[in-house]
Nucleic acid binder design. Structure first.
Lengths: 204, 204
DNA sequence: ACCTGAACACCGTTCAAGT
DNA sequence: ACCTGAACACCGTTCAAGT
């Protein structure tokens, strides 16, 4: 048939991303296929390969947007106060709130793996790493000068730990005995981990 | 064609599980297919449906074995001492060691999701929940009588948090800046979380 | 330069037909 | 009672052919 020129490359890219996000939200990662995205935007499957490297590429771009939305929210909280504990608690709450607002999109972030032969592209780990920046900034006041390495580690421990809680709650693999919510567990984690850091810093 | 009777039902079940574990270890979850398992054990694909509900069922049974192996190791550590901190540190190390020994099997535990329409079967969450028991036993001494709910929560927070660290390290989504290992992060988590619990219990 | 649609090499699952 | 192999309804990806 040949080119149609109904849409610019940018418009087609955006349409595909929007359709993918819509399918993902409704059907989950296993319901997101090249053929269905193509159908939704009124193009043939092959066309998507003119605009994305492959399905993994498309999913990663959608996931990056999901991560970026949380990042924006965390950056907003970063400036709010200088007390680490309430700021970090708020960041944990924001993370959980984002997940509750779009559980299927976040499941996709957690569940997606590259197809058999391929590696995660270079640009993606950086998008995740950005999330540590606000956390590091918020936890910073607990550490004195010259303790940057400790601060970096603490931010990574705390955020990874929080990720563990949210991902188990999300996948319902955590038996939430009598009235425990993700928020309760996250509060407990942040509170006690920070208390532990404080104690160590005070004693040492 | 008809029945062959080359193997008993039990033998065939075991052969399929072994083949699945072997394929999983070598190729990962995306390389594990009904057709390949069938080929490996010298039966037709349809035969596997006489012995397993479907591929999800088979994967879950393999995953349960992976979980059970860690459980056995944790139970061994449980009896070793009564000081919570060293026991819990050892448990965290054991978890990481199991993952390092069989990263593809553990990836399968973390990555597997049920096919579109189906729910996780009843028996599976219980297999995960068992892992909390040794953790709860180890952390117990920190809590006084009447604080069982706090102890339960702490065990779940700590283990979920540890899971977050190991799963991010495993999927290489954690940028391990200059020489941070999963062991380092886990030690930091356990140490500071327990210190925080202690402080709260001491102060309150 | 871009799009189509058929083709290729796969999937999980089902089931009539055989023994 | 159990196994086979073809069939069904899908996949992601490629690419010659068209405009």
């Amino acid at each position: 048939m040949g080119r149609r020129n109904d849409h610019t490359a940018e418009a087609l890219h955006a349409m595909a991303m929007a359709a993918a996000r819509r399918l993902l939200a409704k059907e989950g990662l296993s319901g997101l296929t090249v053929r269905r995205i193509a159908q939704e935007i009124g193009y043939s499957p092959g066309t998507l390969y003119n605009h994305f490297a492959n399905l993994d590429d498309l999913v990663l771009q959608v996931n990056a947007e999901t991560l970026d939305q949380l990042l924006a929210r965390l950056r907003g909280l970063e400036q709010q106060g200088s007390e680490p504990l309430p700021v970090l608690r708020a960041m944990a709450r924001a993370y959980i709130a984002e997940i509750r607002a779009a559980p299927q999109l976040w499941s996709a972030v957690f569940e997606h793996r590259m197809a058999k032969g391929s590696e995660l592209p270079d640009w993606f780990p950086g998008r995740i790493a950005r999330l540590f920046e606000p956390v590091e900034a918020a936890i910073g006041p607990l550490f004195g000068p010259g303790c940057e390495a400790d601060c970096r580690r603490a931010a990574r421990v705390l955020w990874s730990a929080l990720h563990g809680i949210t991902s188990l709650v999300l996948s319902q693999k955590l038996d939430l005995a009598t009235g425990l919510s993700a928020e309760d567990l996250a509060d407990d984690l942040v509170t006690n981990y920070l208390a532990g850091l404080n104690r160590k810093l005070t004693n040492g």
